[in-house]
């Protein structure tokens, strides 16, 4: 593979007959390439929490994911293709995880196994828990469940394999490591007063300055300061599902308030009448 200059193969100068210009050679090459990738997907031997036990159960004889070419679980990130983030990602642990991710060679894939790794899970409200590993490293496939059963995990692994099938060597978006070289390392988070993502450091610094000056901080609407990298703040990109409705829900409808007051008055009258009746009886 390494001796083959793919760019040249893709070049339109390459003598491909007019009726075969639909990348025939590339497509079948892609098929072999994808087949090889999907059939030797080596996961990292890397367990975080409860989900890791189900991952081990999946690797064991009853479910046995070696049937899909994944039997070689590697302890070293240098030898693995897939990082199964199996369990709750804590702020303390995300530092080594990002480091491990950076050490994995391309092509590398990340699976968020279980609710915790996908989005924080039941421990999301905790002070030491990250709301999903995808805030730090790109995730290819999410497997919900708490924990996902071995069969659910295998479904996730097969989904990942299916993802490969759709990819093409001709498309540099699918195989970026041949086009632009190795991907940039993910900046390693720093443990300060809280965890600090270096990509958001400038933003946090501004907030800290605002707080020190006694100004309102922590708001969604940012002060008119040029933020160097707003695109990498992942939380900014995702609008709430029902953002529009929330605004209206928080407003107090004058009509409704009047109605409520009326109702309260009626209830009070009723209560008074009842009390009076009981008093008479007594």
């Amino acid at each position: 593979m390494s001796t083959l200059d793919l760019r040249e193969l893709h070049d339109t100068e390459f003598p491909v007959p007019a009726d075969m210009q639909n990348n025939v050679a590339i497509t079948s090459l892609s098929k072999i390439y994808n087949w090889s990738r999907r059939s030797s997907l080596w996961p990292m031997l890397f367990g975080l929490a409860c989900c890791a036990i189900e991952m081990i159960a999946t690797a064991a004889s009853r479910y046995d994911f070696s049937r899909f070419g994944m039997e070689v679980m590697r302890g070293s990130p240098r030898q693995s293709d897939l990082m199964i983030v199996s369990g709750t990602v804590t702020k303390k642990m995300v530092v080594p995880i990002v480091r491990l991710y950076n050490q994995m060679p391309e092509p590398k894939y990340v699976m968020a196994m279980g609710a915790c790794a996908s989005g924080g899970g039941p421990f999301k409200e905790g002070y030491n828990v990250v709301s999903g590993i995808d805030q730090y490293v790109p995730v290819d496939v999410y497997v919900p469940g708490c924990p996902p059963t071995p069969q659910a995990l295998m479904y996730g692994l097969i989904s990942l394999q299916k993802k490969f099938d759709g990819e093409s060597l001709a498309n540099l978006d699918d195989v970026p490591w041949y086009g632009v070289g190795p991907s940039d390392a993910v900046p390693i988070p720093v443990l300060g007063p809280d965890i600090i993502d270096p990509r958001q450091a400038e933003l946090i610094r501004q907030q800290a300055m605002l707080a020190a000056q006694g100004l309102p901080f922590g708001r969604r609407e940012l002060p008119a300061v040029a933020v160097p990298q707003p695109a990498v703040a992942p939380v900014e990109e995702k609008p709430a599902i029902a953002a529009a409705s929330t605004e209206t829900a928080e407003e107090i409808d004058p009509e409704k308030a009047a109605r409520l007051a009326k109702r309260e008055a009626a209830l009070a009258r009723k209560r008074a009448a009842k009390a009076a009746a009981e008093g008479n009886e007594g």
């Binding site: 989005g119 924080g120 999301k124 409200e125 709301s131 720093v190 300060g192 007063p193 809280d194 600090i196 270096p198 450091a201 933003l203 946090i204 610094r205 907030q207 800290a208 300055m209 707080a211 020190a212 901080f217 922590g218 969604r220 703040a233 939380v235 900014e236 995702k238 709430a240 599902i241 029902a242 409705s245 929330t246 829900a249």
Partner: peptide, 24 residues
């Protein structure tokens, strides 16, 4: 209960006290 995720409600972790001269 219009769904809002915790990290959307509170983007900067408003209860964290960062020092004013935060230096990474």
């Amino acid at each position: 209960g219009w769904v809002r995720r915790a990290e959307e409600l509170n983007v900067f972790g408003k209860n964290v006290r960062y020092p004013a001269d935060l230096d990474l």
